[in-house]
Amino acid sequence: MYYRCWDDSVGRARQDKRAGTQSHSSLLIGMILVDAGFILELLLRAYSEGLRAENDLIFAKSGTIHDLKRDLMLLENQLPFFLLKKMYKRALKCNPHYPSFLHLTCHFFSHYYNQSISIDEVLSPNNPRSSEYRSNLEDPKHFTDLIRTFSATILHYSEAAAVWKMEHSERKYTLHEFDIIPKAGGREEFDENNGELKIPPLKVDDSTESFYGNLMVWEQCYYPNDTFICDYIFLIGYLIKSAEDVSILVRKRILINQLGSPIEIVAMFNRLCKYINVGTENRYSSLFMKLNAYNAVPHHSWIAILKLEYFSTPWRGVATIAAIILLVLTMIQTICALISL
């Protein structure tokens, strides 16, 4: 019945449409293979200078490779990691003179990890935790997922604070209000006895906003119940509310400022935190609770204000002490004058 309604013109149209579909598919596959080949060659040339031409156009200017790294980590520019990995293995046939694809990729994006631990140390067989790291890194979806997993894995193994449920307070505090003594450390923790907060060092430059913003978008879409990066950025944004807060962290070598103006850093973290949905399961809830409890003690705030207003710099401290001495001497002179009367 349906075959009787079929005619040559319709058949030809359907055949042309099918051929067109095949043509588009072939074109897409060809584009993917060309992009994948370029990426693999780029990673290898970045890893070994011996594989570069004498006047390599990509590596002759540092800005070019920097732009390529930024483009290759953007969520909209991703190719499946398993595809690149298989092509790499097939091209090199497990040549022992070349690193694994995981090592090669981590080396290429090492600039973005912002961590004191090196890629070689993390992936070294001599590292007792190497197998734990590798189990989380071996099968990422793509480069963005790998970078997010790598960053979150290092933070996870350097931070051991328990996650407590809490009601998020709308009140925001700054570093000087907490009277915190910031110290660079291996994990985020707060000592209520002496007001000492330990935070892993963080490098901030012109790529930080796009780097973390990109990871946060991917994390909120694919890992809504494990927002490690979002929680970490919210913690930093929670502490940095003024240019003075930034200056404190820079002086304590917690923030490595390669961006420039402290005000720009404050604005950057405000933008990053704007779209973070803060729930009760934030990874640093217990830390926020300790900070709030510490600030609730009145004399902590008084001491903080005293340090901020009168002892924030050595010269200001000397001037304050001199003023106090002068005031005491004036009072003594006044009392002596009254007694002599």
Rank of each mutant, 00 (worst) to 15 (best):
E170F: 08
G186C: 07
G37H: 01
G185S: 12
E170W: 03
D67Y: 00
G30I: 01
V163Q: 01
L326G: 11
L197H: 02
E54H: 06
F101M: 01
P80N: 01
C5W: 02
C5V: 03
P182T: 10
N270L: 04
R90E: 14
P314Y: 02
I58V: 14
A337H: 02
P80M: 03
L104S: 01
T208V: 10
L104K: 02
L33A: 11
E281H: 08
A160R: 01
C5L: 14
E264N: 13
A162M: 06
I240Y: 09
I199Y: 03
I58T: 02
Y2M: 12
A304S: 12
R253M: 14
L326I: 04
Y294A: 14
N214Y: 03
Y3P: 00
K274T: 00
V250A: 10
V204I: 15
I324F: 15
G195M: 05
S169R: 03
A36N: 06
P314T: 08
I229V: 15
I154D: 08
D8Y: 09
L249W: 05
E188F: 12
V278N: 07
T149D: 10
T320N: 08
R18D: 13
P182R: 02
Y222K: 09
Y3S: 12
K89L: 15
I117V: 15
K252I: 04
C94E: 09
V278A: 12
V266R: 00
L306C: 12
A36P: 03
G37Q: 03
F269G: 06
G260H: 04
K61R: 11
I332T: 05
A152G: 09
L68R: 05
L255F: 15
K86H: 05
G50D: 10
H24E: 11
M73N: 00
D245E: 06
P99A: 10
Y98E: 02
Y223P: 00
R134G: 11
I339E: 13
R90M: 12
C230I: 04
M87N: 05
L33R: 07
H111G: 08
F288C: 03
Y275H: 13
S62F: 06
T153V: 09
I276K: 06
F269R: 01
P298F: 09
L329Y: 04
H111K: 07
G30K: 07
I332D: 13
K252L: 08
P125D: 04
F288P: 09
D245Q: 07
N225L: 12
